[in-house]
Design a protein around this nucleic acid. Sequence first.
DNA 1: TCTGGGGTCCTTCCGCCA
DNA 2: TCTGTGGCGGAAGGACCC
Length: 368
Amino acid sequence: MDAFYASVELLRYPELKGQPVVIGGGRRHQPQVQPDGTRRFARLADYKGRGVITTATYPARDLGVHSGMGLMKAAVRAPDAVLLPTDFERYREYSRRFKAAVAEVAPRIEDRGIDEIYIDLTDVPGAQDAVGHDPFGGVRAVAQEIRNNVKRATGLTCSIGVTPNKLMSKIASELDKPDGLTLLTQDDLAVRLWPLPVRRINGIGPKAGAKLEDIGVRTIGQLAACEAALLIGHFGRSYARWLADAANGRDDRPLATSGEPVSMSRETTFDRDLSAHHDRAELGAILDELVGHLAHDLQRKGYLGKTVGIKLRFDDFRTVTRDLTLAEPTAEADAIRHAAGQCLKRVDFSRRIRLLGVRMASLRHAGR
DNA sequence: TCTGGGGTCCTTCCGCCA
DNA sequence: TCTGTGGCGGAAGGACCC
């Protein structure tokens, strides 16, 4: 989906269409309806506190702000951009709608989060057919039908990449965003993918990207041309092999159509850094609240967990975790709280804390 | 004034046990 | 009885993604 959260917001605030808008921050900054019926929106310049942009509209991106950027920093670059709070309830509803719309055309779907899916078109009727002189006319028509269905069901646009595998499709889907349809075969690899920066490969992040840059590898084509020995020397056998495969468009991962959750968690970043000694009561109350939410989430979704974990982030942004595996799976707040307390005893609290989280892993269904 | 919240997967280390 | 080996689960951290 294109700029998903922002696009959902524009459906209810159509007067913002074409303007720079960013989504993020806390529950403050709700639009206010004025006496004359028009809405008054918060501006980035009004924002104070911790938080990042989750989504920016394309006009906002043109001003140099993008998802992941701190809101205070973004406010310097685009002070007049409209700021809207996140409304996950609503995004989840639109997520369900667009996935259902896709499933009407092509039922084999892998969920990749709230705004992204992989679709297997192999057995969709007509997808293998040529149309006139176009050998891919059939699959092109199927992809277009999916786009039309999504638009009809949600009012939103999406971008689709049609290729032989997941790795190439992910890149292809971003080549013509927003509202794009890109079809690539293995033969298009050298012309369309090799000129792109390595960071466009799903799985090469900031660290691997920087390491590749260090050895003079900037594009996917340069990566494809790399000596195996050089890559193995810098990345180890396993990751080197994966890098080479990715650069050559090789990916045989099957579609993962059913996924059970592995863990569930709740975490929060404080308005100000807290001291374990000085702000003990406040920290305890926050932990109780997080544990309560987590227990409620587990019970609502019908899961028990065996491994309780805590997560702390200190004022220097260093993160530590501590785990404890219980004798019996549980979803009870009291048991989780007790285990979290045991975990906390194993942490050195000489620095101030900016984030606290609780996690449950080793999940199983509650119905025995 | 830096840097959210919710996840997955992989690697490494360590202790336990056969 | 001593030593080595290897599997395995748990714990911790890190990279990455949406």
